[in-house]
């Protein structure tokens, strides 16, 4: 649901959280993004950092530079304005990401087919059908949370997480797609793998995705995966379409 009024409350003694609802949806995320932009355009003293997520914006502040009540009051006003704004960014980027949905690159494909009752082609067809939205980065550096995923592809988390999910794993669960920037433990169902880089310290952008980007997956063969992998050493290598609109 969307809350009738944005909820402002402390999250620890140096952060304040403004929540607009309790669902993973574009309509709840829209005011989160609008509020980030409104805050960025104001020079609020004591504001250290903003972390936009699905349904809330968390603002880190320096309590020696601004009083909590003063900050909360100002952010309540801005949150109300953000809720009333109709538009989202004029022209988000659209990034097209190659994904191999075959064989060892898709260890959970059988589970996903069993659970959803779809066959492999239908799963791939759905996952590559529409441009998704990057709601947030989190978990590890550069890791995007992408959605909303079509209802037919909803699968639960694993009962016990894998100790190692490979770098580039494209995984689904709880109505979202996540791509693992490096090998880490992970509890989501791996539907495929991408050879592109998601995080590069030497690149000024640092991360391939930014919250608010659009993203589309393109199915590639094992052969094409390997060809892209061989040349994808920097951010954006192998991301073959990068456009506005």
């Amino acid at each position: 649901m969307i809350y009738p009024k944005p909820l402002v409350k402390p999250s620890g003694d140096r952060a304040l959280r403004i929540t607009f609802g309790d669902e993973r949806s574009l309509r709840v995320n829209r005011p989160v993004r609008a509020l980030s932009r409104l805050i960025a355009s104001e020079a609020l003293p004591g504001l250290l950092e903003m972390v936009p997520t699905y349904a809330s914006l968390t603002v880190l502040y320096d309590p020696d530079a601004i009083d909590y009540d003063a900050l909360a009051g100002r952010l309540e006003d801005l949150a109300r304005q953000a809720s009333e704004q109709e538009t989202i960014e004029a022209s988000p980027r659209l990034l097209t990401i190659p994904v191999c949905y075959e064989g060892d690159y898709a260890p959970d494909m059988d589970y996903i087919c069993d659970y959803t009752g779809l066959d492999r082609n239908q799963v791939v067809g759905l996952h590559t059908a529409e441009a998704y939205f990057v709601f947030q980065l989190g978990f590890t550096p550069g890791c995007p949370f992408i959605g909303p995923l079509q209802e037919q592809l909803h699968v639960p988390l694993m009962q016990s997480p894998r100790t190692r999910t490979p770098k580039g794993a494209v995984a689904i669960s709880v109505g979202q797609t996540v791509i693992y920037p490096r090998a880490t433990p992970g509890g989501m169902r791996i539907v495929g793998r991408t050879p592109v880089q998601l995080f590069q310290l030497e690149h000024p952008d640092l991360t391939l995705f930014k919250p608010g980007d659009r993203v589309r997956f393109r199915a590639v063969s094992v052969q094409e995966y390997k060809a892209i992998e061989a040349r994808a050493s920097a951010l954006y290598d192998g991301v073959e379409s990068l456009s506005h609109g």
């Binding site: 620890g12 929540t19 993973r24 997520t53 968390t58 947030q136």
Partner: peptide, 12 residues
């Protein structure tokens, strides 16, 4: 225990 994913402040 599940909530919509959000920022985790230090010490949460």
């Amino acid at each position: 225990p599940i909530v919509v994913s959000e920022a985790t402040p230090l010490g949460a």
